[in-house]
Simulated assay, not measured.
Amino acid sequence: MTTPRDLLIIAIDRASGHPVEQGDLSLALAGAEVIDLLGAEAIRLDDDRIVPGLRPALPDRLLDEAASSLAVEAPYESVDDWLWRRGRGLSAAYLAALEAEGQLFRPRRHRWLPSGNSRTELVDSPTRRRAAERWTSGEPVLGALAAAVGVRDERTADAPGLSDDAVARVLGAVHDAVSELAGERQRRAIEDAAFDNVWRGD
């Protein structure tokens, strides 16, 4: 399994009462890909730039796709630019991959129920159990990524710090991007509310 897949599974498992924003999740998944590519030595960071390294065989299709989409010429791509480019629609891609592999399903909707009542559910599988074990162990990378999208508990609060500076920089970029997106959502909500007030004559 990969960090993006583990993150998605935890987000589905732990955020049922408070669904994760898909945009936030997509940014975090893109960051998780960078972290796994660092671990595979497929990339290194030069300051905030993603520099391609080895091109190992990556068994995960989406992670291999991520490696194939790296900028291969200087000045390369910044982590921040990667998050916004690669992250576009990435949560839907990972959901589709898990669904195609039989890791999750969408319960059938009855005709008399509104479509919004349908939710994705995880299959009880070794994949899900491995992600849960990583989560309950308090592994700091997964905990930090989950916290960035609003999924946290006492384990993430007490997780040990990171000794890898490159990974810490990626996690910082994810948190900044998610904060930026939240600010944009807030600005749009204020603008929409003001627009509605004009039409109502308030």
Results as ranks from 00 to 15, higher is better:
residue 78 S to Y: 00
residue 174 V to W: 05
residue 57 A to N: 12
residue 44 R to Y: 14
residue 135 W to Y: 15
residue 19 P to M: 09
residue 188 R to W: 07
residue 139 E to W: 05
residue 33 E to V: 08
residue 132 A to F: 12
residue 132 A to E: 12
residue 179 S to M: 13
residue 174 V to Y: 02
residue 43 I to L: 05
residue 12 I to P: 04
residue 177 A to F: 05
residue 51 V to A: 01
residue 140 P to N: 07
residue 117 N to G: 12
residue 156 T to Q: 11
residue 79 V to C: 14
residue 118 S to W: 04
residue 91 S to A: 15
residue 34 V to G: 10
residue 68 S to Q: 15
residue 145 L to W: 01
residue 150 G to L: 06
residue 167 V to I: 15
residue 104 L to A: 14
residue 105 F to I: 05
residue 200 R to N: 11
residue 71 A to M: 08
residue 86 R to H: 13
residue 21 E to C: 09
residue 128 R to D: 06
residue 160 P to F: 03
residue 2 T to H: 04
residue 58 L to S: 00
residue 134 R to T: 12
residue 70 L to W: 00
residue 62 L to G: 08
residue 16 S to L: 11
residue 192 D to E: 14
residue 122 L to Y: 02
residue 40 A to F: 14
residue 66 A to M: 04
residue 55 R to S: 15
residue 10 I to P: 02
residue 43 I to Y: 07
residue 189 A to E: 10
residue 165 D to R: 15
residue 83 L to P: 00
residue 71 A to W: 02
residue 191 E to I: 08
residue 166 A to N: 08
residue 54 L to T: 12
residue 101 E to G: 14
residue 177 A to W: 04
residue 18 H to Y: 10
residue 170 V to M: 03
residue 159 A to E: 09
residue 195 F to C: 10
residue 46 D to S: 15
residue 7 L to H: 11
residue 126 P to L: 05
residue 189 A to L: 09
residue 29 L to P: 06
residue 69 S to V: 08
residue 137 S to V: 09
residue 164 D to P: 04
residue 4 P to N: 00
residue 1 M to F: 07
residue 10 I to N: 09
residue 138 G to W: 03
residue 4 P to E: 01
residue 70 L to Y: 06
residue 153 D to V: 07
residue 12 I to C: 03
residue 37 L to Q: 05
residue 122 L to C: 03
residue 191 E to W: 03
residue 65 E to P: 00
residue 170 V to L: 03
residue 102 G to M: 01
residue 30 A to G: 01
residue 11 A to R: 01
residue 107 P to T: 11
residue 95 L to N: 04
residue 100 A to P: 02
residue 199 W to C: 12
residue 74 A to N: 04
residue 183 G to A: 10
residue 167 V to F: 05
residue 146 A to T: 03
residue 172 G to F: 02
residue 32 A to M: 07
residue 15 A to S: 15
residue 172 G to W: 02
residue 153 D to G: 13
residue 45 L to E: 01
residue 181 L to T: 05
residue 18 H to R: 15
residue 18 H to C: 11
residue 83 L to F: 05
residue 40 A to Q: 13
residue 131 A to E: 07
residue 199 W to P: 02
residue 146 A to P: 08
residue 16 S to C: 05
residue 164 D to E: 14
residue 157 A to T: 14
residue 60 D to V: 06
residue 70 L to N: 06
residue 163 S to Y: 10
residue 89 G to Y: 03
residue 138 G to K: 06
residue 178 V to W: 03
residue 80 D to C: 09
residue 50 I to Y: 06
residue 25 L to P: 06
residue 184 E to D: 12
residue 92 A to P: 06
residue 177 A to D: 03
residue 63 L to V: 04
residue 174 V to I: 05
residue 22 Q to V: 14
residue 102 G to Q: 04
residue 137 S to N: 10
residue 157 A to V: 13
residue 84 W to L: 14
residue 141 V to Q: 05
residue 48 D to L: 11
residue 177 A to C: 07
residue 182 A to W: 08
residue 143 G to P: 08
residue 110 H to F: 13
residue 91 S to Q: 13
residue 59 P to C: 08
residue 193 A to C: 11
residue 127 T to F: 09
residue 128 R to V: 13
residue 171 L to W: 12
residue 124 D to G: 02
residue 112 W to T: 12
residue 152 R to Q: 13
residue 5 R to Y: 09
residue 93 A to I: 01
residue 5 R to G: 13
residue 97 A to S: 15
residue 14 R to G: 10
residue 83 L to H: 08
residue 200 R to Q: 12
residue 122 L to P: 07
residue 83 L to N: 04
residue 78 S to R: 07
residue 28 A to V: 09
residue 99 E to D: 11
residue 106 R to K: 13
